[in-house]
């Protein structure tokens, strides 16, 4: 089977998140970058599915040229083909992102045929627009379900097992919902669907040789315009230090009693 995964490069801030002076983006001067966690799991899922059922994984990203780093990381954990849609450093709005991705996907599919599955992260870790996958699915006229934490190929359709169906599990409070989605399909994946592997030495070497195709897209901006980013105001109160080491235990249990959680 042929699977496409759309991923986003995001900064990896630690204890604090800073914004550039113009308020347009996260100040990443001292930060590393990573693949947005849901999408890292989507890549792993795609690789596992092709390991089980045969086929190839293509990874596509819309981002700065530096996002090639995330495509090469995907290569190091087993993906096969790579497409970069280059933009400047500031995010495109969700409509614009989705249109560019849909065009680029259509272009790949025109030569190679439709992907059986297209995976997105449920939402990007940074902007969190909750819509790009849905818009792309709609452009392509395909079904999509979000929040997916389990995928199996083959599902029941009209009482029979159908190889053309992806059975997807979506987590809800205290359980999950099951969807039987006919392929070609699009799914929005969440972290926890699997535990992504670390790259092997062999994978790292292969990733250096991976070929990244560049596909420039000029698409009109959408109706959501960023004015500025800022940190929420926080009330930080003094921390009461209850003690040092195990001798602090009585003070801790006093606190637990006070809060009424001991009863």
């Amino acid at each position: 089977m042929r699977i496409l995964v759309c991923v986003k490069r995001v900064p990896a801030p630690g204890a604090r998140i800073n914004v550039t002076a113009d308020g347009q983006t996260v100040d990443a001067a001292h930060l590393g970058f990573t693949t947005s966690p849901h999408e890292e799991c989507a890549v792993e899922e795609a690789v596992q599915l092709t390991e089980a059922h045969g086929g190839e994984v293509t990874v596509m990203t819309l981002g700065p040229v530096a996002a090639e780093e995330q495509l090469r990381y995907a290569a190091s954990v087993g993906a096969h083909h790579f497409v970069l849609i280059p933009i400047d450093d500031v995010d495109w709005d969700p409509q614009r992102t989705a249109s560019a991705l849909a065009e680029a996907i259509a272009a790949v599919e025109e030569t190679n045929g439709a992907f059986d599955l297209i995976l997105f992260g449920n939402e990007s870790a940074d902007a969190g627009g909750f819509q790009v996958g849905v818009r792309v699915a709609n452009h392509l006229g395909r079904p999509i379900v979000n929040g997916i934490k389990g995928i199996e190929i083959g599902g029941e359709q009209g009482g029979e097992l159908d190889e053309g169906v992806a059975t997807a599990r979506r987590e809800i409070d205290g359980g999950f919902e099951v969807y039987n989605v006919p392929m070609p399909a699009v799914l929005g994946v969440k972290e926890g669907i699997n535990l992504p592997r670390y790259p092997t030495m062999k994978g790292r070497l292969a990733s250096k040789k991976a070929v990244v195709d560049t596909d420039e897209r000029t698409v009109e901006a959408g109706g959501q315009v960023r004015l500025r980013l800022h940190r929420p105001v926080e009330q930080i109160s003094e921390t009461v230090i209850l003690g040092t080491g195990p001798e602090a235990a009585p003070a801790v249990v006093d606190l637990l009693e006070e809060l009424g959680v001991l009863s």
Partner: peptide, 28 residues
């Protein structure tokens, strides 16, 4: 960051502090 943002903190090795808290709860 967890310490500076928390209302309360114990500075120490969790491998000693946690069992001590459990013991104190049981003792009381």
């Amino acid at each position: 960051n967890m310490v500076t943002r928390a209302g309360h903190a114990v500075i120490g090795d969790l491998h000693q502090v946690i069992p001590a808290i459990t013991e104190e709860v049981r003792r009381r």
